[in-house]
Design a protein around this nucleic acid. Structure first.
Lengths: 237, 237
DNA sequence: ATTTTTTGGTTCGATGGCGAACAATAATTT
DNA sequence: AAATTATTGTTCGCCATCGAACCAAAAAAT
């Protein structure tokens, strides 16, 4: 039974906890590795466990009649399952699964629910995180309603980049297309544009971010506000 | 100083309160009329008051650089300002304003914040409402990403219809276009299609809902889940 | 009653993304 | 090494929506 030290943790929420709150959760955190496309939370199923990503990240999607569309991204800044648990429901019509494999810290839902009831500081922190998720969702609405594919793609690459170590994203055009709700060929073309302008560099199953600033010039205000709220309410990187 | 009776209230959240919680809030509720396009909460400004719509409803929008896009709708099922207040922030990058004029019950933010701290049942109810807002936002993402204008319009009309008395919506094509993030001419054409199929009937500044079922056939799963969550977690109409 | 403003109807070319193929290349399996 | 599969590149016609006008009708203002 290895002791997990707060200082050695990647997850920004766990790092932002008071040491009291951390001590409360620490005995219940279990390290696990995640597999690509592994389901963490299934739509309509009772939530038994929540997951603090340490490396890699998850997608929250809504499964419409036609397609699965991504409505949120949870990496080391977050907690998978936070919203349903803290907002008082045991299940949700959304689904969460691993989008980039890595490691997670798993915690039992009941334990976390009680901890959040007992500790105001823990509850406040997690609710603030949920606020940043709502802002993120608002901007996703804006992006889909107002922006062209190339801009939405730039936004998505930036959000992805924030959640990995290094500059290389491992994912296929096919998958990107699914998340953004467009066809795969369109993603290929948009990526080629971005690559031509020196913003990224693509290889098979890999996209390397070369120039964040140039990507930021494309996003038309759809990136940044949620991240600013996170910094303001929860804390620095 | 007129006493407001819980039984005579339209707002579904207030009706769903325990009588203890209602008694706690009741002395602080002030009836006011709302004007079309009146700002209730401004982006980036401290939130001083919250509003329970009784008649009419408000829009939550996010103001990107180019356009204002609607990200939420708050009528008598909700509370304007609930999310920022309960999630622990005094301001938010979103803006809320009256979309259909009517009456509101206003309450001081500090009073409500303290009441929510002291009463678990009140806090739980409001957090559950926020959950339904998040589901609504998820489906809005889905609608913008996956559906054509006619379907999104049908969805919006249904959500609107849920929040008014009677079958007549008072709003202009111009305004609808702004909320949906499309051009006005497109709205006119889509409304003509809906009208031709006997689903609605349009007059100047007025849209009458004739056949909800036929509208439901168009929405492709983008309407219903949030309303179901509301019914499940908060209660019937 | 006349003028002005607001709202809705209509049309035009331009274009972004769809839908559907099929080819080319890299990775994986046998 | 050969065969198979997964991934990416490319193209073509099509359609929804854009962007931009302009007009008609209704309401509001004078």
């Amino acid at each position: 039974m290895s002791q997990i030290q707060q200082a050695s943790i990647q997850n920004r929420l766990l790092r932002a906890l008071t040491s009291d709150d951390f001590s409360r959760l620490q005995p219940h955190l279990e390290t696990m590795t995640s597999q690509l496309r592994e389901d963490l939370i299934e739509a309509g199923e009772p939530i038994k466990e929540l997951y603090f990503p340490e490396v890699g990240f998850a997608s929250i999607v809504i499964d419409g009649l036609a397609q699965k569309i991504e409505v949120g991204l949870v990496g080391r800044e977050g907690l998978v399952g936070a919203a349903p648990l803290l907002l008082g429901t045991d299940c949700t019509p959304q689904q969460s699964f691993i989008q980039m494999a890595g490691t997670l810290l798993r915690i039992d839902a009941g334990v976390l629910r009680i901890a959040a009831q007992e500790s105001t500081s823990l509850r406040t922190l997690l609710l603030r995180y949920i606020h940043t998720q709502m802002i993120q969702a608002s901007l996703t609405i804006y992006a889909h309603a107002a922006l062209k594919l190339e801009s939405r793609l730039a936004r998505w690459l930036l959000m992805c980049h924030d959640r990995v170590d290094g500059d290389e994203l491992v994912l296929t055009h096919e998958f990107l297309a699914m998340m953004l709700g467009v066809q795969r060929a369109g993603v290929t073309l948009a990526l080629q544009n971005l690559e031509g302008a020196g913003r990224i560099q693509g290889r098979r199953k890999r996209i390397r971010i070369l120039d964040r600033d140039k990507l930021l010039q494309l996003v038309n205000g759809s990136y940044g506000a949620a991240e600013a709220e996170y910094a303001r309410l929860i804390g620095g990187a």
